[in-house]
Design a protein around this nucleic acid. Structure first.
Length: 286
DNA sequence: CGCCAGGTTGTCG
DNA sequence: CGACAACATGGC
């Protein structure tokens, strides 16, 4: 399956920018992984995306939407870039980021795991969750376990995935989703404040995890999750702005800023002597 | 070893 | 309301 004329899209920037935790980069720069129960490999060649393991039907039914290929990111980027020069810098730094349409339960569960945690370890816990409770597909690739499957477990059953204190949050979320107490497809269309409140009925889901679920799992592009990186970025780079100033595509702005900040930690370090010296040495090398 | 991580909860003032 | 420790684990 080959899709032509794709702009504003980069595999690494999109699949490894902290919105999804399961994609594996292969030697040749392609990405292999599972979503919606399907195993695929993406390759990018100039303006073409090559998808192995997927036919026309699956592309139209799943992957076109998953990769958000119908949204005009050029236009959005151009509008966002007018809001603030540093946002323009961030968008220019990773112009190929898109916001995925992930499965709602996977996004919810993944971001419950993300709390007070670092990205490498989040990936490890999610991987062990899938290996332990998902269905095998091929090689060691597995599906993401359904809410129903997890709902049948106890926190102790999750001990092999080493999620720590988050284990009972995962179970609580799974049970509320599986028994219909929370209908994620209804949450998708709720007023944003109601949607947040609904998700926050789950123990262990606060405003940040709720916003991540809404943005990455339910494609609510106006959500602007504030984690430690984003709080630093707002305080340091956008002191005059608040999240709502970024508008209906604020979630996309957030992703540019999050990635840009994580890739430039020096922006947030006090200008220590050592740091200044390093910068000076760097200048001499140029 | 100590600090921190895409936070949330519970408690105390 | 706001501040703040505790939470489980391991990356760096």
């Amino acid at each position: 399956m080959i899709i032509e004329n794709i702009k504003d899209f980069d595999l690494a920037q999109t699949l490894d920018c902290g919105q999804a935790f399961r994609w594996r980069e292969l030697e040749d720069g392609s990405f292999k992984g599972v979503a919606f129960g399907r195993l695929v490999t993406f390759q990018k060649d100039d303006e073409k995306i090559i998808i192995s393991g997927c036919g026309e039907t699956d592309f139209e039914k799943i992957w076109r939407n998953y990769l958000d290929l119908d949204l005009d990111y050029s236009s959005i980027k151009s509008d966002l870039s007018k809001l603030h020069p540093t946002l323009a810098d961030a968008a220019r730094f990773a112009p190929g980021i898109r916001i995925l349409n992930q499965e709602p339960w996977e996004a919810l569960c993944s971001f419950i795991i993300s709390q007070n945690n670092n990205i490498p370890r989040i990936k490890g816990i999610v991987e062990r969750l899938c290996q332990s409770f998902g269905d095998p597909i091929e090689g060691d690739f597995c599906t993401f376990p359904s809410a129903e499957r997890i709902a049948a477990l106890s926190p102790e059953d999750l001990s092999p995935i080493r999620a720590g204190f988050r284990a009972r949050y995962i179970i609580d979320g799974a049970r509320k989703v599986a028994n219909g107490e929370i209908d994620l497809e209804k949450v998708r269309f709720m007023e944003i404040e109601d949607a947040r409140k609904e998700l926050m009925k789950i123990t262990g889901v606060g405003i940040k995890v709720a916003d991540c679920t809404l943005l990455y799992g339910l494609h609510r592009l106006d959500c602007f999750p504030l984690d430690v990186w984003m709080k630093r970025a707002m305080a340091t780079l956008f002191p005059e702005m608040k999240p709502s100033d970024f508008g209906k595509y604020g979630g996309i702005a957030q992703q540019y800023i999050f990635h840009y900040s994580r890739m430039h930690p020096e922006l947030f370090q006090p200008a220590t002597a050592g740091n200044a010296r390093r910068k000076f040495a760097h200048r001499l090398l140029e």
